[in-house]
């Protein structure tokens, strides 16, 4: 986070970018009770920490868990129960298991209310690039393309720019695509941005930031959201 401020010190006014955890906390506020939600591996998983237990939100994991709960205390680990990130988790009361084909039928069939994924880039038409970069390690897609194609409401949680200050909100993705025209909203360390038929619309910014200053660090054109 600090890197972004440093690299863009001339263009960003005095504002405090959010940490990854703070982005997760901000996003969690927008998840209402009753939603079925898949959280992607990495930073999106932290969103679950900020949904209070009394707000019943049901988390799904691609490896066949519906009603996933938080990490167990070390003494209470069930070694047969991991999430899609291969971390030990728990099952909430009311949770259930299913096999992989059913788990992805649920995803592809559009039954989830929300999927939150990380990303390298999001384009102004909603294209998502989050599975491969130009590095030479073996390509690995996991469930990202199924989640992106199948979930009606896809939100992205990511930093606004790369560590070297390049915008992750772009006109067209330069990285390999995960899915076309699927992202509905982006939560970054600087702003909450909707993807609309007319491009990116800024819903809110961190205190002290202006639309002009945000535009300076954003590749694609921005406007304020009207609703």
């Amino acid at each position: 986070m600090n890197t972004i401020v440093k690299d863009n010190v001339k263009t960003l006014p005095a504002c405090q970018p959010l940490s990854r955890r703070q982005i997760a906390e901000r996003l969690a506020r927008d998840i209402p009770e009753g939603w079925y939600v898949n959280l992607g591996i990495g930073a999106p998983l932290q969103v679950a920490d900020y949904v209070p237990p009394e707000r019943e939100v049901i988390f799904q994991s691609e490896n066949g868990i519906l009603g996933m709960g938080p990490a167990p205390a070390p003494a209470e680990i069930n070694r047969w129960l991991i999430n899609a990130g291969k971390q030990y988790v728990t099952l909430r009361s009311g949770g259930s298991y299913m096999h992989h084909a059913d788990s992805f039928a649920l995803i592809r069939g559009g039954h989830l209310d929300l999927c939150v994924l990380g990303a390298f880039q999001v384009a102004e038409n909603g294209d998502l690039a989050n599975w491969a970069t130009t590095t030479d390690s073996a390509p690995a897609v996991g469930g990202a393309m199924d989640l992106a194609a199948g979930t009606p409401r896809l939100w992205v949680l990511m930093d606004h720019t790369t560590k070297t200050g390049e915008s992750r909100l772009v006109r067209r993705c330069s990285y390999p695509l995960t899915a076309i025209g699927v992202v509905k909203r982006i939560y970054t360390n600087l702003a909450v941005v909707d993807v609309t038929p007319d491009g990116f619309a800024v819903r809110e910014m961190v205190p002290g930031l202006t639309l002009d200053a945000l535009q300076e660090v954003t590749d694609a054109p921005l406007r304020m959201a009207t609703n």
Binding site: E62, A101, F104, A105, A138, A140, V141, A144, D146, G150
Partner: peptide, 22 residues
């Protein structure tokens, strides 16, 4: 796997997880 793949000694077909299950 990485070693075999880099050496070109194993063929890799990457399939989306849900497509693979289906």
């Amino acid at each position: 796997f990485e070693k075999l793949w880099r050496a070109g000694r194993i063929e890799l077909e990457v399939v989306p997880q849900g497509t693979m299950a289906e």
